[in-house]
Simulated scan of single mutants.
Amino acid sequence: MTGRKKECYSLASIANAIGGTLVGEPEILISGLCSLQKASPDKLSFLSNRAYKHYLKTTSAGAVIVSNDDQLLFSGNKLISEDPYLAYALASKLFVDSPKFLSGIHSSANLHSSVSLPKDVFIGPNVVIEEDVVIGHRCQIGSGTTIGARTVIGDECSTSANVVIDKDVTLGDRVKIHSGAVIGADGFGYAFDGEKSIKIFQLGSVRIGDDVEIGAQTTIDRGALDDTVICDGVKIDNQVQIGHNCHIGKHTIICGCVGLAGSVTLGAYCVMGGGSGAVGHITLADRVQVSAMSLVSQSISEAGRYSAGTVQMKTRDWKRATMRFKELDSLAKRLKRLERD
């Protein structure tokens, strides 16, 4: 079976789309994006991390997006940008193989009679939609998705296969949810009566703003009392756990395998690095960046970069350092005694 032929773009048209300055042949045709190492003459590449600058000497790319500072490192066709990584992001939109927009309801879908949806919505195979759900224009609901009662979904939202959106959830416009994500499951709340754990029923829900993207297998729990809130423009990677009553500020980035305990507040434009976490009931100010695998154990009131944990080293050195770490308290006490003497 023959696939759909991908469109090519002249270098001049790409420069116009990304706002770059073209140096070289404007009519050269580009069929896609590729890394510096593997690019062919019909591909566009980019340099945003200078650790890869040595590949500029050997790349076969038809053109490269570079910064003004790095333009002299490459003698071929180039697009000069103040931010090559942002320019690469803009260029990627030209070459994405977007699925064709569909409309209609698959015969195997199970919709409650009270569901409200316009004619320009697509409902895929084996979708289940419960009572009083409202779905906006041009939404695409992927196969096997379940949408709980009284959920409201804005315009131009999409779910991939097997997404679960529980009852009373609200989604803004242009929300994209990837396969296996669960939105609105019960938060993890229990009270101990001395013998056993007593469940705290989760009475809130989840509110998601506009232009949010949620990765595969991510879970966002409903609030215990108030709602869990994900503000406009937030991007959440795969396999992230967001506990009940968290509040994620606008345009924050949460990388893969992050875990946020209940009632964490992240400000706007924060970044949580991969595998990082935060204990419950703390607040991070706007524009805080947390390094990968760091644990945030107290509130952060100033913007900036924060890290926790030990640096990589050979195992024998790490073992030695760990033993010395255990001795710090006694060393500090000995030092105080020496200072008094």
Rank of each mutant, 00 (worst) to 15 (best):
I177Y: 06
R4K: 14
Q289R: 13
V127A: 08
I65F: 06
Q71G: 01
L111G: 08
T21Q: 13
V128W: 07
V206K: 07
G148R: 06
T21D: 12
G275M: 00
G144F: 07
K333E: 15
D83M: 02
K78W: 01
D97L: 14
P26H: 03
Y52K: 02
P26Q: 05
D232T: 05
T310A: 08
S98W: 15
D211C: 06
L117T: 08
A216Y: 10
F325L: 15
N16T: 09
D97M: 11
D120M: 09
E156L: 00
R207K: 14
G184P: 09
F201H: 11
G76D: 01
K167N: 11
G280R: 02
H247R: 14
K235Q: 12
I236M: 11
V128F: 12
A17F: 09
I177K: 04
I254D: 05
H251A: 07
K43M: 06
S263T: 02
L94N: 11
S143L: 00
R50C: 03
H106D: 15
E25R: 09
Y190N: 13
Y306Q: 01
D69A: 08
S263P: 10
D317P: 00
I198K: 10
K6E: 08
K57I: 06
L225I: 15
T310R: 05
Y190W: 14
C157M: 07
D155W: 06
D155H: 08
Q202G: 06
T218W: 11
P41T: 07
N16E: 15
P118L: 12
G194Y: 02
L47W: 02
T310V: 11
S297Q: 09
I198V: 14
V240P: 03
F188G: 07
S35R: 04
K100W: 06
S114G: 05
G277F: 01
D232I: 04
C34S: 14
N238V: 02
K43P: 00
S40C: 04
A216F: 08
S108Y: 08
S263V: 12
E25V: 10
K100S: 12
G62I: 02
C8A: 12
S98Y: 15
V290A: 03
I282C: 03
A308C: 03
A303R: 15
V212P: 10
F101R: 13
Q241Y: 11
K235L: 10
M272D: 05
I198P: 03
S10M: 04
Y306T: 00
H112N: 13
T315C: 04
F101S: 07
H247I: 15
L225G: 07
M323T: 13
G124A: 10
C255V: 12
K336M: 11
L338G: 03
G62M: 01
G209S: 08
G209C: 04
N68T: 10
E7F: 00
L47Y: 02
D210Q: 06
L72M: 10
R316A: 07
V271C: 01
I105Q: 10
I28E: 09
A39C: 08
I282M: 01
G187C: 02
V133F: 11
G3C: 07
K6M: 14
I147G: 00
G223C: 08
Q140F: 13
F122H: 14
R316D: 13
P118C: 10
S113I: 12
V169Y: 04
S197N: 15
F74I: 00
